[in-house]
Amino acid sequence: MSGIAMRLPYLLRFFALLLMLPLLAACASGPAREAASAPLTFIVVRHAEKATDDPENPSLSAAGLARADALAQRLHDVPLIAVYATEFRRTRQTAHPAATAHGLPVEAYYARGPAGEVAAQWKQRHRAGTVLVVGHSNTVPDLVAALCGCAAAPMDETEYDRVSIVRVHADRPATLEVQRYGAPTAR
Rank of each mutant, 00 (worst) to 15 (best):
C150D: 08
P9W: 08
A146T: 07
A145S: 09
Y181M: 05
A145C: 09
A48G: 02
A68P: 03
L8R: 15
E117K: 13
V140W: 08
L18M: 15
L11Q: 13
V78S: 10
A85H: 02
G135R: 09
I43Y: 13
L8H: 10
E107K: 12
R90D: 07
Q121P: 04
V140H: 06
G103Y: 05
F42Y: 09
L75P: 01
L11P: 03
H136T: 02
A151P: 07
V133G: 00
V144C: 09
P184A: 02
F42D: 00
S61E: 05
D54C: 06
L40Q: 03
V83G: 05
L8K: 14
L132M: 14
A111G: 03
L104W: 03
R74Q: 10
R162L: 15
A70I: 04
S137N: 13
D171L: 08
L176N: 00
P22H: 00
A170C: 08
V163T: 14
I165G: 04
E177N: 12
L80I: 10
V106D: 02
R172D: 14
R167L: 10
P39A: 04
S137W: 06
I81Y: 07
L19R: 06
A108N: 04
P173R: 10
R187L: 09
R7Y: 12
L11T: 12
A151W: 13
A35D: 10
Y110E: 15
M155C: 10
Y10D: 14
A51C: 07
A25Q: 06
A82Y: 06
G103W: 05
A120W: 12
V134Q: 04
A146E: 03
T86W: 08
